[in-house]
Measured scan of single mutants.
Amino acid sequence: QIFVKTLTGKTITLEVEPSDTIENVKAKIQDKEGIPPDQQRLIFAGKQLEDGRTLSDYNIQKESTLHLVL
């Protein structure tokens, strides 16, 4: 699982696999929060994550925290 922290300070927990794409993660966030993926920007280690890449591409491991910017 990974954590996604929103600007409001809320933390969302997501069940993911390293092979999941960023697009996939955004879809999971939409399921939980109702935020359309095209409004979501995910930041990890100061980098904006691209939809077509996977979590493992960015070396995002379990218990990692991503930041969600709208």
Rank of each mutant, 00 (worst) to 15 (best):
E63P: 03
Q40C: 09
L70E: 08
Y58C: 05
K28H: 04
G52M: 09
I22N: 01
T54K: 11
A27S: 14
L42H: 00
D38N: 10
D20T: 09
E63M: 13
I29C: 02
V25K: 00
E63K: 08
V4C: 04
L68E: 01
V25Y: 01
V16H: 05
V4R: 00
T54D: 03
I12S: 02
V69Q: 10
A45W: 08
G46S: 05
G46E: 05
I2H: 01
I43E: 11
I43R: 05
L66V: 08
T65F: 07
T11H: 07
I29A: 02
I22M: 04
G9R: 02
V25S: 00
I22W: 02
P18I: 12
I35E: 03
I43Y: 13
K47L: 14
E50H: 09
A27R: 14
S19E: 10
L7N: 15
E23C: 11
F44E: 02
E15L: 12
V25I: 11
I43M: 13
S19M: 11
L70N: 10
S56E: 12
P37L: 13
L70W: 09
S56I: 09
G46M: 05
L7W: 13
P36V: 06
S19D: 12
F3D: 03
K47S: 09
S19H: 14
S56C: 08
S19V: 06
Q61L: 12
G52I: 08
K28T: 03
D51W: 04
L7V: 15
L70I: 14
I35G: 03
Q40F: 14
Q40N: 03
E50W: 05
Q61F: 11
G34T: 03
H67C: 13
V69D: 07
G9I: 02
V69K: 08
Q30Y: 15
I29R: 00
V25D: 00
V16P: 01
G52P: 07
K28Y: 06
T11Y: 10
L42R: 00
K32L: 11
E15T: 14
L42M: 03
Q40D: 02
L68K: 00
E33M: 13
T65D: 03
D20N: 07
I12D: 00
D31L: 14
G52L: 07
R53G: 06
F3S: 05
L68Q: 02
F44A: 03
S64D: 15
K5G: 03
Y58W: 02
G9V: 02
K5I: 15
D20P: 00
D20A: 06
Q30T: 10
I60D: 01
Q61V: 11
E33I: 11
I22D: 00
K47D: 07
L7I: 14
Q40E: 02
S56K: 09
T21M: 07
L70P: 09
L68C: 04
P36K: 07
A45F: 09
T21C: 05
K28G: 03
A27C: 13
K10C: 13
L42E: 00
I12Y: 06
A45Y: 09
P18T: 09
S19Y: 11
D38R: 09
P36W: 06
G9Q: 04
G34V: 02
G46A: 04
D57N: 05
S64K: 04
N24S: 14
E15A: 12
A27D: 08
I12Q: 02
L42S: 00
K47W: 08
T6A: 05
Q1W: 15
D51I: 05
D57H: 12
S64W: 05
A27W: 12
Q48R: 08
K62C: 09
I22P: 02
V16A: 07
I29H: 00
E33V: 13
Q30R: 11
K32R: 10
Q39W: 09
Q30S: 12
F44G: 02
I2L: 09
D38A: 12
G34Q: 06
I12C: 03
K26P: 00
R41H: 13
T54E: 03
K32C: 11
T21N: 04
N59K: 09
L68A: 02
V4K: 00
K26N: 01
I22Q: 02
V4S: 00
Y58P: 00
Q61H: 11
L49E: 00
G34A: 05
T6W: 12
E15G: 06
L70Y: 11
E23D: 08
L68R: 00
Q48I: 15
A27Q: 13
E17Q: 14
Q39P: 03
E17K: 15
K32W: 06
D38H: 15
T13E: 07
K47H: 11
R53A: 08
L49P: 01
R41D: 08
Q61S: 10
T11M: 13
G46R: 04
N59V: 04
K26F: 03
T54S: 08
S64L: 04
P37C: 10
T8C: 15
P37R: 15
I35C: 06
T65C: 08
Y58G: 01
I12E: 01
D20M: 10
E23I: 09
K32M: 11
L49A: 02
D57R: 03
K26G: 01
N24V: 13
K28Q: 09
E63C: 14
E50V: 08
T54L: 09
S64F: 09
S64I: 05
K32E: 07
S56M: 12
P37D: 04
L7D: 15
A45M: 15
K26H: 02
E33C: 12
L14W: 01
T11E: 06
Q48W: 11
F3A: 04
I29S: 01
E17Y: 13
F3P: 01
T54Y: 06
I29L: 08
N59I: 04
Q30N: 09
I43A: 06
D51Q: 05
P37Q: 12
F44I: 03
F44P: 00
L7G: 13
Q39R: 10
E17L: 14
S56T: 07
A45N: 15
P18G: 10
E63G: 14
H67Q: 12
V69S: 09
D38F: 11
R53P: 05
L14E: 00
L7C: 15
T6P: 05
F44L: 05
E15W: 13
K62I: 09
D51H: 06
D31Q: 13
D38I: 10
K5C: 09
V16R: 02
E50P: 03
K5H: 09
S64H: 08
Q1V: 15
K47V: 15
Q30P: 02
E15N: 12
E63I: 03
K47T: 14
G52E: 12
I22A: 02
G9D: 05
V25A: 02
L49W: 01
G52H: 15
D20G: 03
E17F: 15
V25W: 01
S64T: 08
R53M: 12
K10Q: 09
I2N: 01
G46K: 04
D57M: 06
Q61E: 11
G34H: 07
R41A: 10
D57L: 03
T54V: 06
N24A: 14
G52Y: 10
I22Y: 01
H67G: 05
H67K: 08
T13K: 09
R41C: 15
L66A: 02
R53L: 13
E63S: 10
P37H: 10
Q61I: 12
T13G: 05
E33F: 09
K47Y: 10
E17N: 14
S19K: 08
E23F: 14
L14M: 04
S19G: 10
K26T: 02
L7Q: 15
A45E: 15
E63N: 13
L68H: 01
K5W: 07
I12V: 06
D31K: 14
L14Q: 01
L66P: 02
N24L: 14
E17T: 14
E50Q: 09
P36A: 10
I60P: 01
P18V: 10
I2M: 05
E50T: 06
T8R: 08
D57A: 06
V69T: 09
V69L: 11
F44W: 09
P36D: 08
I2T: 02
A27M: 15
P18C: 11
L55D: 00
T21L: 09
K5V: 14
L55M: 05
H67Y: 15
I2R: 01
Q30F: 15
K10R: 12
H67S: 09
E17H: 13
S64Q: 08
G52R: 09
D51L: 05
Q48Y: 14
Q61D: 10
A45T: 05
T8K: 11
H67R: 08
T11W: 07
T54M: 09
L66F: 04
F44S: 03
T11K: 07
I12W: 06
L68I: 05
T8S: 13
S56R: 12
L70H: 10
I60Q: 01
K47P: 01
Q40T: 05
Y58K: 01
G46H: 06
E33Q: 06
L70A: 10
K47G: 06
N59H: 10
T8Y: 13
Q30C: 14
L55K: 00
L70R: 08
P37M: 15
S56Q: 13
V69W: 10
I43L: 12
G52T: 10
I29M: 03
L42G: 00
I43Q: 07
Q1S: 11
E17M: 14
E23H: 13
V16T: 05
L49S: 00
K28M: 12
I29Y: 02
T11Q: 07
P36R: 09
K10T: 08
K10M: 10
V4W: 01
T65M: 09
N59C: 09
G9W: 04
S64G: 07
D51N: 11
G34D: 06
T13P: 06
H67M: 13
Q39N: 10
H67W: 09
Q30E: 10
K5S: 08
G46Q: 05
D31S: 12
Q39L: 12
S19R: 08
I43D: 05
L49H: 00
S19C: 14
T13L: 10
G34W: 03
V4F: 03
T65I: 14
E15F: 14
E15P: 06
Q61C: 09
L55R: 01
K47A: 10
I35K: 02
A45G: 14
D31E: 13
Q40Y: 13
R53S: 08
